[in-house]
Lab assay of single mutants.
Amino acid sequence: EVTIKANLIFANGSTQTAEFKGTFEKATSEAYAYADTLKKDNGEYTVDVADKGYTLNIKFAG
Score class of each variant (00 low, 15 high):
E1I: 06
E1G: 08
E1F: 05
V2Q: 07
T3W: 06
T3V: 12
T3G: 04
T3P: 04
T3I: 12
I4S: 00
K5R: 13
A6T: 09
A6D: 01
N7C: 05
N7E: 07
N7P: 01
L8K: 00
I9V: 15
I9D: 06
I9T: 10
I9C: 05
I9K: 12
I9Y: 14
I9E: 08
I9P: 00
F10R: 03
F10M: 11
F10Y: 15
A11C: 05
G13L: 13
G13A: 06
G13I: 03
S14H: 13
S14G: 10
S14L: 11
Q16A: 14
T17G: 10
T17Q: 10
T17H: 14
T17A: 10
A18G: 07
A18V: 14
E19F: 12
E19P: 04
F20Y: 09
K21I: 14
K21F: 15
K21P: 05
K21Q: 13
G22W: 01
G22F: 02
T23F: 08
T23R: 03
T23Q: 14
T23Y: 15
F24S: 04
E25S: 07
E25T: 07
E25Y: 05
E25K: 05
K26D: 15
K26F: 15
K26N: 15
A27S: 05
T28H: 09
S29D: 13
S29L: 14
E30L: 10
A31V: 11
A31K: 00
A33E: 13
A33H: 14
A33C: 05
Y34T: 04
Y34M: 09
Y34L: 10
Y34S: 02
A35F: 13
D36Y: 03
D36G: 04
T37W: 11
T37Y: 09
T37K: 08
L38Y: 13
L38K: 09
K39C: 04
K40V: 08
K40Q: 12
D41W: 15
D41Q: 13
D41R: 10
D41S: 15
N42Q: 09
N42T: 04
G43I: 03
G43P: 01
G43F: 03
E44F: 09
E44L: 15
E44G: 09
Y45S: 01
Y45W: 12
T46F: 14
T46I: 14
T46Y: 12
T46C: 07
V47P: 02
V47Q: 02
D48N: 14
D48I: 14
D48Q: 08
V49K: 08
V49A: 12
A50T: 07
A50D: 09
A50W: 10
A50H: 15
A50V: 09
K52A: 15
K52G: 13
G53M: 03
Y54R: 06
Y54Q: 07
T55S: 08
T55V: 13
T55W: 06
T55C: 04
L56M: 08
L56P: 00
L56D: 00
N57A: 05
N57S: 07
N57M: 10
I58R: 00
I58S: 00
I58V: 10
K59A: 10
K59I: 14
K59S: 09
F60K: 00
F60P: 00
F60V: 01
A61S: 12
A61E: 09
A61G: 08
G62C: 07
